[in-house]
Design a protein around this nucleic acid. Structure first.
Lengths: 196, 196
DNA sequence: CCGAGCATAGACAGATCTGTCTGGTAACGT
DNA sequence: ACGTTACCAGACAGATCTGTCTATGCTCGG
């Protein structure tokens, strides 16, 4: 009975996947408002009706795009967590920032997709902005927990400061010399966390 | 002979001023791509031909908008500098960040106009991106000089870290709880600068 | 075998976008 | 008195945007 729906969910509709992948690439690379539906369906090789079948409106697609990015970041953190199996929470935190630096080095890096999307959606109540907020709350929570586990007596305050560094890292690697910014992450973390 | 041109420059064309003021408000509040020329000329009360007389293309207007913001920020720093007449460079630096926090508290604050504009202009060679870069170079230079004057042995590195904090401050005050972010600036600066 | 659901191609509507062009008014310096 | 310059009003072209709709084909579960 449930078989078919689950079957659909397992295959997850190739056309839908193609659209979402294309949109993810284009939205990130060029911005949301700068990429039209026609362009997306053309590059995804999908009919317009099919697109609107899966995504009733462009906003829905934008939201799905950010969900995709959110999932990717959670996966990335989980991977880092797994790679350094059961390590010191402080080491783990440093490893997460290292990983962010690596991602920022990849060609085509254009900063944080959430910050960029938020710049294009002024309405704080818009679902897209809510998705941005979700991601930020998640990241701050991860930081706070790692800091608390590492024995930081002011975990919340430190987490807020790390949030500043995170945003600065994303923006700086996009707009300034990425290598120089990457080089300064570790010293910054040392100063903020206290190199005890 | 030069009188007339200077005369024009002095009055600086009321229509042009109106357009630039309107564009500044709208671009910052809603984003560049989201605001059309028709809307700007309507709200500025200016004819289309007049607009295109002063700004041959929209990109030119966007560039002028960022120039305007650049000038405003230099004026703000100069004002802070003047207010705390000949003070300790370290105190001056703290005062600059305080001032940024105050600006971020104003209603309608929507983050850094340069970061937001850059999100909408992927082409790093575009004049708009060049304007963004100019502003960033200026700010980093100001920081470096103040730090050097304050006797920081690693002024360049510290300036890069302050750049991270600056960007994080702008983004955080836009997307998170502005009051909470503002509250954490001073502790962050203390940690980065060393509260000696 | 048949109906539901997913897919395609593409026309279409209605809005909006940038930018051009015409035509007319008024101020101002020479 | 004349030419330049600034300004206004608004039509227009051509592209592009989102979203709807028609018409058709395929596959697969019941």
């Amino acid at each position: 009975m449930v078989t078919k729906k689950e079957e659909v969910r397992r295959r997850e509709s190739p056309a839908r996947r193609r659209v979402l992948d294309t949109a993810t690439t284009l939205f990130y690379a060029e911005g949301v408002h700068a990429v039209g539906i026609d362009r997306i369906i053309a590059e995804a090789g999908v009919a317009k009706a099919t697109f609107y079948h899966h995504f009733p409106a462009k906003d829905v697609l934008v939201h799905a795009y950010l969900d995709e990015q959110y999932r990717a970041q959670r996966d990335a953190v989980a991977a880092v967590r797994e790679a350094s199996g059961g390590e010191n929470p402080r080491e783990l935190l440093l490893a997460v920032f290292d990983r962010m630096g690596e991602i920022a080095r990849e060609p085509g890096f254009r900063g944080c997709p959430f910050i960029n999307a938020a710049a294009e959606f002024p309405d704080a109540g818009h679902p897209v902005r809510q998705a941005v907020l979700d991601h930020r709350v998640w990241f701050r929570t991860v930081m706070t927990e790692l800091l608390a586990a590492a024995g930081d007596p002011r975990a919340a305050e430190t987490a807020d400061i790390l949030m500043l560094l995170r945003d600065g890292l994303a923006v700086g690697c996009y707009l300034d010399d990425a290598a120089a910014v990457r080089a300064v992450i570790r010293p910054a973390l040392d100063r903020v966390l206290g190199d005890a």
